[in-house]
Amino acid sequence: MGGGTVGAETEEQPHGAAVVADGFGLKGPRGWAFRKVSFRAEPGALVAIEGPSGSGRTCLLLALTGRMKAKEGHAEVGGLPLPRKMAAVRRISALGQVPGVSELDPAFTVAEHLRERALLQRRFDGSVRALLRRPAERAATARARIDEAVAAAGLDLDALPKGERTSVRDLERLEALRLSIALALIGRPRLLAVDDTDLKLSDADRAEAWALLRSLAASGTTVLAVCSEAPEDALRITTLEGGTAADTAPETPADTAKTDTAKTDSVKTGLTKADPAETGPAKTGAAGTGAEDGTGEDTTAAVGETAADDTTDATTEEGAADALAETGRA
């Protein structure tokens, strides 16, 4: 039966979820948020989505975690196809702090955030058997999950100004990032997505943040991280202003093996800077159709558009705003 298949895959495969994108694109009513994104990341990979603000980085992050619906191409997360299995992808992925989507409440304390997340995890993702356990046993299980997540995120509660009672508004930027990651890890996701990883961080704090994400990837969790500048050892996906291009630029032989693009230092996959051989039928022929994504809209034609066809589209920021509005999160 279907449940047995999913369980078997979880047991046989690594904890992390492989992520594959082929001609992946998302468009709002007034323009493309991102387009022609193609890459392959193995389970436990560290994937850095870099680019300037407004270039569609966050939209790509949300689309790959099943929170936004792509309009062309296709992707798979842990073998689950997008956009057809968005709900299933959401169940195996978790978001760190994403502005406007999963923000920390500045009035809450660290302890309140952790307890709330553990309660929600148990209520919505726990088994019926777990819900029927004695209160003391449920509390012990929740505490164990919290401690595990806090340790993995490197959040030292004793070092905070008021310990667990410290309000979010009193946290330093790096501490808030660690807390948001700890909250995501309570659900033990196979895919962790983090937005604005290096925003407003000093060089030392930025190094600590990337060291944390590397440790999570090394433990088996696949990590997607939006940033302004990717570290050299990450699988790099670069979004460009205008929403019409993305780079896949592996920096090492190991990274090159993780991609499905040609073995060059910088492979263009967007419309305006692409090598025709890289963006031809081999890249775009597997794009989803209206029948697949349930919208009734044929997206196959959009895959074959050229740069000239796309010059009238609005900016990435407008496209991203419209796409977010469609999700009810604008």
Rank of each mutant, 00 (worst) to 15 (best):
P43V: 00
K69D: 07
V226L: 02
G16T: 03
G2F: 13
D22N: 15
R165M: 06
F24N: 12
T272Y: 13
V101N: 00
T272V: 11
K273R: 15
R129C: 04
T279V: 11
T272R: 13
A218Y: 02
A142L: 14
L171H: 11
R129S: 09
A211C: 07
G79K: 01
A277N: 15
V267G: 08
G294T: 06
V98K: 09
R329H: 12
V89L: 05
P81W: 09
P81M: 10
R138K: 08
S93G: 12
A107S: 13
T311D: 04
D196L: 11
S93Y: 12
L179V: 03
D205R: 07
A45D: 03
L216Y: 02
E164V: 08
L174A: 03
E326N: 01
A94M: 01
G243C: 11
E292R: 11
R134W: 05
G288T: 12
A33P: 05
T256A: 13
T221Q: 11
R173I: 08
T299M: 11
V19R: 02
A70M: 04
V47C: 01
A18Q: 10
P43R: 00
Q121N: 15
D275H: 11
D205H: 10
G96I: 02
L179T: 01
I186L: 01
L155P: 06
E76N: 04
E103T: 14
E50G: 07
L171A: 02
G100A: 04
R236S: 04
E112I: 07
P189S: 02
T279E: 04
L95Q: 02
T299V: 14
V194I: 06
R122K: 09
A307G: 14
L192K: 07
R129E: 12
G78P: 10
D156N: 09
F34I: 14
P276A: 12
A207H: 07
S53L: 13
L201N: 03
L240K: 03
V47S: 10
G242K: 05
R122S: 15
T5C: 15
L185T: 07
G270N: 08
E11Y: 03
T316V: 02
A209F: 05
Q13N: 13
G25H: 02
G96M: 03
R138N: 08
T197L: 08
P281H: 13
T10M: 09
P135E: 08
E175N: 00
L104G: 03
T58Q: 02
T312P: 01
T65N: 07
G31M: 00
T248G: 04
H74W: 14
G294K: 00
G220V: 04
A230M: 10
V223D: 05
A302I: 04
A153M: 00
A182D: 04
L185M: 15
A218P: 01
E251Q: 11
A218G: 05
A136W: 09
A88I: 01
M1H: 08
L177Y: 09
I237L: 09
L82Y: 01
A287F: 09
E318D: 10
D260C: 08
E103L: 11
E229C: 11
